[in-house]
Design a protein around this nucleic acid. Structure first.
Length: 480
RNA sequence: GGCCUCAUAGUAUAAUGGUUAGUACAACGGGUUUUCAUCCCGUCAAUGUGGGUUCAAUUCCCGCUGAGGUCACCA
């Protein structure tokens, strides 16, 4: 049987990274088995619906490279893929249950239900609506009246691919609402119908649905459906506390990370390995490797804490990996929009060269903005920075001036300006002046960049070019 | 409160009866002619607790503790 998985978010806002993993795992499983990955939009809650959320979801999946085989935009044989466009289907399925005496229209006023619930809460007992079920049941489909499942509670045993063998008693099943009074189905009902119609073989979702599973099992049974493989994914925990990572912890959307210069490879890699591993000590995985190695039985059953530091470390690894294995050009192609504005005035070739000497310092692509500004515009001379430098503060102004002059003289003589010649010249200068590298090099480095840090001195000078380097050194010499 | 789930260093995890409990991030220290980073080397650091079973428990069983989920006309 073909493996069919799905990601079924509700469009209530952006999907934050805590949820993205629920898209990654089904995607990996589908690709591994040459099956299908479906995107289905669960927009049955009209009050929480957020305009534009669907586009945000699509953007996120596209950015991460999680292309879907059926769903919005691409279509498919089992559409529509918006639940709001499938109301007739749910009604029809509900009517089947009504006809079979397994569901009933229930117009008990909400206040009454709240009262029952309150009684239970006060008595410290779980609330089960079926204990308050009306004695006369209405099996007619009625507009504007909720339809409830008529539970026939019993014991269930099933296997969760992550949690293992599960057991639940009769107390876990209730008369859940199938169709709300506004005619929209509840999640509990709609996903069962859709998964069946779309031939979904693996249902992956957060552990919070584990408690409701017996109700789903009852529904599958009532419709004589095969139960798909059930996969409960543990929560991703916020950096502090023990709560699930959520928007109110400031959980960013995946696209925010994109805009901050995180590579999709790194995001995918990090999230996939948060709560899953292949048993080896490998840390960096390409998407293809993840597809190849992924397995349900190695998904962790406990929650995993989200650690942005490790994400950023991984991003740095990916930046270097792309540069080293695919070339400077490949990395450069990812940097559009991350350069300082002044970089626009320079050629692509020059920016490429800057990238080549700075790339191993990047944690995110957005670091380019602050780390490369002095390559594109003359820095403001900050004599305090020179004087307060820990290596330079022992030197007098006269000494500094003298060193700058000697440096200018030496560099002026160079006719073939390249990194090797520069290194030789710098070494010669070191010998002539008798200064330590820490002193001389810091002086030159700061004079041409006025940046807290920069690449190796000969590389920086080489990229800057002879004219710019000398001009900056002269400017500093004059202002001492 | 009922039901359910989870439990190895600060974090993510490896090891499913036998290892000096491994790896990575972080932290700390050192090296690579300046800085920051990369890279390399090193240090610190863990089986929640109490009982069993066993020659032997991180691993199997039970109690406890702790954490989380769920008990919506939200998903």
């Amino acid at each position: 049987m073909e493996t069919v998985t799905r990601f079924a978010p509700s469009p209530t806002g952006y999907i934050h990274i805590g949820n993205v993993r629920s898209a990654i795992y089904p995607y990996l499983l589908a690709r591994q088995n040459k099956g299908k990955f479906i995107l289905r939009i669960e927009d049955t809650d009209r009050e929480r619906y957020v305009e534009g959320a669907t586009e945000l979801i699509e953007d996120t999946l596209k950015w991460l490279g999680l292309e879907w085989d059926e769903g919005p935009v691409v279509g498919g044989d089992h559409g529509p893929y918006f639940q709001s466009e499938r109301l007739e289907i749910y009604h029809e399925w509900a009517k089947r249950l009504l006809a079979a005496g397994r569901a009933y229209s229930d117009d008990t006023p909400p206040e009454k239900i709240d009262e029952y619930r309150k009684q239970c809460t006060e008595a410290k007992k779980p609330f089960l609506y079926r204990n308050y079920r009306p004695s006369e049941l209405n099996y007619e489909f009625k507009e504007g009246v909720p339809i409830r499942f008529k539970a026939e509670p019993k014991d269930y045993d099933w296997v969760d691919a992550v949690m293992g063998p599960m057991h639940a008693g009769a107390e876990t099943q209730d008369d859940i609402i199938l169709i709300k009074k506004d005619g929209y189905p509840t999640y509990n009902f709609a996903h069962i119908v859709d998964d069946a119609l779309m031939q979904v073989t693996h249902v992956m979702r957060g552990v919070e649905y584990l408690s409701s599973t017996p109700n789903y099992l009852a529904l599958y049974e009532a419709f004589s459906l095969d139960v798909p493989v059930l996969v409960s994914l543990p929560h991703i925990l916020a950096p502090t506390g023990n709560k699930k990572l959520g928007k109110r912890d400031g959980a960013k959307s995946a696209t925010e990370y994109r805009d901050d210069g995180v590579l999709p490879e790194a995001m995918l890699n990090y999230l996939a390995c948060l709560g899953w591993n292949d048993g080896t000590e490998q840390e960096i995985y390409t998407k293809e490797e993840l597809i190849d190695r992924f397995s349900l039985d190695r998904i962790q059953s406990s929650g995993a804490r989200y650690d942005e530091t490790k994400l950023l470390w991984m991003n740095g690894q990916w930046i270097r990996q792309i540069f080293d294995t695919q070339g400077a050009r490949a990395l450069y192609d990812r940097t559009a929009g991350f350069w300082p504005e002044s970089a626009d005035n320079y050629s692509e070739e020059y920016r490429l060269q800057v990238l080549s000497i700075i790339y191993d310092r990047l944690k995110t692509l957005s670091d380019l903005k602050e780390m490369t500004a002095y390559f594109f515009e003359d820095p403001e001379i900050d004599t305090d920075m020179l004087k307060n430098n820990k290596f330079l503060k022992k030197l007098s102004e006269v000494e500094i001036e003298d060193l700058l002059k000697k440096t200018i003289a030496k560099l002026s003589e160079i006719s073939e300006w390249n990194e090797d010649v520069l290194q030789d010249a710098l070494n010669a200068l070191l010998e002539e002046t008798g200064k330590k590298p820490a002193e001389l090099f810091s002086l030159i480095r700061i004079s041409v960049s006025f940046a807290p840090f920069s690449p190796a001195l000969n590389l920086t000078l080489n990229t800057l070019g002879k004219d710019v380097s000398l001009a900056r050194l002269n400017a500093v010499a004059r202002s001492i």
